[in-house]
Every structure is written in C-alpha cells, then in structure tokens.
Write a protein that binds this DNA or RNA. Sequence first.
DNA 1: TTCAGCTATTCGGCGTTGCTAGGTACTGGT
DNA 2: ACCAGTACCTAGCAACGCCGAATAGCTGAA
Lengths: 109, 109
Amino acid sequence: MGKLVTEMLKGTLEGIVLAILSGRPAYGYEITAWLRDQGFSDIAEGTIYALLVRIEQRGLVDVEKVPSEKGPPRKVYSLNAQGREYLEEFWTTWSFLAGRLEQLREGGK
Amino acid sequence: MGKLVTEMLKGTLEGIVLAILSGRPAYGYEITAWLRDQGFSDIAEGTIYALLVRIEQRGLVDVEKVPSEKGPPRKVYSLNAQGREYLEEFWTTWSFLAGRLEQLREGGK
DNA sequence: TTCAGCTATTCGGCGTTGCTAGGTACTGGT
DNA sequence: ACCAGTACCTAGCAACGCCGAATAGCTGAA
C-alpha cells in the first residue's frame, strides 16, 4: 500500500488498537507484530508506542509492567471501563463513515 | 460528532470528494453543502477548497470556470482518467481497511 | 568472549491533513 | 445603503503517522 493507507489510518489506528485490547491485554511489540501479520505491513513501531502513550494519558487503558524472558520488561495494556466506552463511540463514528462511503460506492457505478 | 470523525476524515475525505466527482462534475460550495446534508455537519468550507486545490495540482481533476447568476464564478471540477485510476486505488485501500475493522468488530463480541 | 540478532521501548523532527477564523467578491431584495 | 446568500481563498494551528536513531536486556553462534 503506501501513502493512501497511512493517511486513512489517522484516526482509525487508535480504534484498531483499542479493539485489539478489548479482546485481550497486550503490549506494544506484540501489537505491532500482530498488525504486520494482518497485512498492515508498513505500520511503524514508533507509531504504536506513541499511540499507546496517548491512550494511556487519556485514561482509556490500564498498564502493568511484566518481566519478559526474552528482553526488557513489557508494558502490558488492558482496556478499562472508560476505554470500552470510548471504543463504543469509535464504532458509532466508524459505522457512520463506512455507511456513507458504501453509499457513495454504490452510487458511483 | 466531533474530534473522532475529524481524525477519521483524514485520508478518507479525499476519497469521498473524488467519489462524488466520479458521479458528476461539481464545485466547492456545492460539495460542501451536499456533505453537510449527508450528515457531515462539521466539515469546514476551507477544508474542501484546500482539498480541491490539492487534487487539482496532482492532476486528478479538470477544472472549468463557469459563471453563476447568484455570485462569483464557480470552479467546476470533474474527475479525469488519472483521477479515476486513483479512485480505484482508494477503494482498494478502503476495502482492505474496512475488512480488517469488520473482523475486529466481530472478534470483539 | 565477543558480537550479531531478536526482544522491547522511547524520542525528536518531519510531512500531510482537517479545523479555525478571517477576508474577498458578486448578486438581489428591503 | 445594507444585508443575506452565493462562491472562493488564505494563514496559522493541532493531531496523527512515519522516519531514523538510540537504549537496553537476553540468547546463541563464532
């Protein structure tokens, strides 16, 4: 992909990460690897870490430092109540946008 | 809506406008009004004009100045071949992203 | 023992994007 | 003369994701 997906990720990447965390707690390195696996080949590591800091500061996640056998300690993030609430809002907004886009795509044929 | 949708629009608004233009030529003021009508209540006029300038400079649209009875002349934009090609790419990227989000949403239940 | 390579996180500077807030200009009605 | 509606443009700002580099711990091969 490239620039197109980069710009589209603005605003959605946050929701993606929150959605991941809604399923299970996770840490940055793990999330990055998983996203790459899912086809988000060009997501920068630094982007994820910065995002995690942001959502932590906004109080959407809880953090726990967990030692790792294979390297430095991990910062494991888990979605809290406020985070779940915010994720709901995200899905609402996403649905709105996706709906409009869907309509436009139909109309354009 | 608010900040959430603003961030999500980054990258998608361009596609939205191109999709509109793929159906029919249009000018800025008209596009803004139509978007507001479609529920994008907080899209700023300046945003659309700036976007139109950008896609013109990238050669995705052709422009024609058309006199108006009710004000200054309109700048009517129409999608050209390069624009259609780019719009295809946009839809591909969008589909990818929407697919991943859909999966995440399912999984999160 | 050393050094490469994987794990794991952090930081500063950059480009793109949308918003804010203001301005310009033309027309028609009061 | 004035104001509302039409139509466009601009400068400065904030947020986000990317790039490049640095730091730090652990393991296994040379």
